[in-house]
Design a protein around this nucleic acid. Sequence first.
DNA 1: GGTCATTTGTTCGTATGTATA
DNA 2: GTATACATACGAACAAATGAC
Lengths: 230, 230
Amino acid sequence: MKINKPRRLSLVEQVTKEIEQLIQQGYWKVGDKIPSEKVLMEQFDVSRNTLREAVRALTHVGLLETKQGSGTIVISESMFDLVLAKQIEQNSIAQILEVRLAIEREAAFLAAERRTETELKEMQHLIYQCKQALENDDLNNFMEADIKFHQKVVQASQNNLFVDLYASLNDSLQFSIEQIMFYAEEKVEENNIHHELYQAIKNQESEQASKLVDIYITSWKSLLEESSCH
Amino acid sequence: MKINKPRRLSLVEQVTKEIEQLIQQGYWKVGDKIPSEKVLMEQFDVSRNTLREAVRALTHVGLLETKQGSGTIVISESMFDLVLAKQIEQNSIAQILEVRLAIEREAAFLAAERRTETELKEMQHLIYQCKQALENDDLNNFMEADIKFHQKVVQASQNNLFVDLYASLNDSLQFSIEQIMFYAEEKVEENNIHHELYQAIKNQESEQASKLVDIYITSWKSLLEESSCH
DNA sequence: GGTCATTTGTTCGTATGTATA
DNA sequence: GTATACATACGAACAAATGAC
């Protein structure tokens, strides 16, 4: 889909884009209060109405939130997450897991071909964190490291689209994974898959990496089905 | 008990939401021209500036397009396509193909398990259309039927998220596929994959369906690499 | 509790440019 | 060319919410 854009950007569009970039570049971070309309008017050298329309556009898509008498704060740094999350909400957990499997399996395959030494070291460290959290029976820390490990695998595919899609899916899945974890007793087996997957990626065994992810997510899926029977 | 402030929706937000709903409910369809600002001002009982801010918010996200001296037309009914397309634009064709492979392969696997009789018949018809288009050397019709066939396969997975993601990816890929097609001489081979894939899905051979999609897209990918060398 | 400056919300008016009929 | 309708931008005014003193 190619969007027509022969005309030059309007003032509002320019300001909107600039603010969007300032947010994405981290100049204004999530939770921050951005300057008042008065200050921004001078900074961008536009009228109040022009500035307000730009801010309004960004509040509508969910990047900003305005509070009368108080100010305007940043509530998200990318529209992609928001829209995808909204779309994902309409689907069942089982369907999301199917998409997650599709993405993570292919990403693991590519990661085995393209991973860097740095990424391998980071994976190893995350596996260690998982192990330690398990020994301390600290489920929260385990889940955090677990998710980070899988994100690292996807990142090692060197494909930004995989990374973005996977991140958005994961956000939506996280709460549901907690539920599933409740029924999961065989945590050690999970940890073994971590190490096996790491070995496959390290040794550049693409097919093996794919297969391991398949096993990993299929086990989640069956856990989900069991838990829904109760 | 502290009750959250019932932050009432601003006038602009109300109007924005109403227009958005009218579009999504199909009251105003894609391509339609919506009433003039004057009419809408009366209909929603708001000032011109308020209405304009609402329209502006929707043009910014890409649902509406305003044309000077003419009016405002609806150009899309969901933000999802637009945002995803924007995200995809930032990635290379090779990366998009990798995501497409991930989605279509898994979808084919599931389609083999879940396809309905109706979907099988529709696939058969689309294969016939592809064949006919090839005999008439009609590339445009071939591509149209080809895309529809693969969409039908994804649809047969009975997973809406796959369908949505695949549709958005396809829109972005379509123009690039045309380029690749230019270098593709072995069209007959393509058609054979159609029929083989259909047979696998019909006979519920999931693994075989996956494998065929893999072969299919890998061949696209190598064509792409060849063409980029010229 | 009340006052007051600040900040955003809402509306109107004006001016100029541009595309369409 | 003219008239109409929309696009774009600026300025001003008052309302309403907030926070600090």
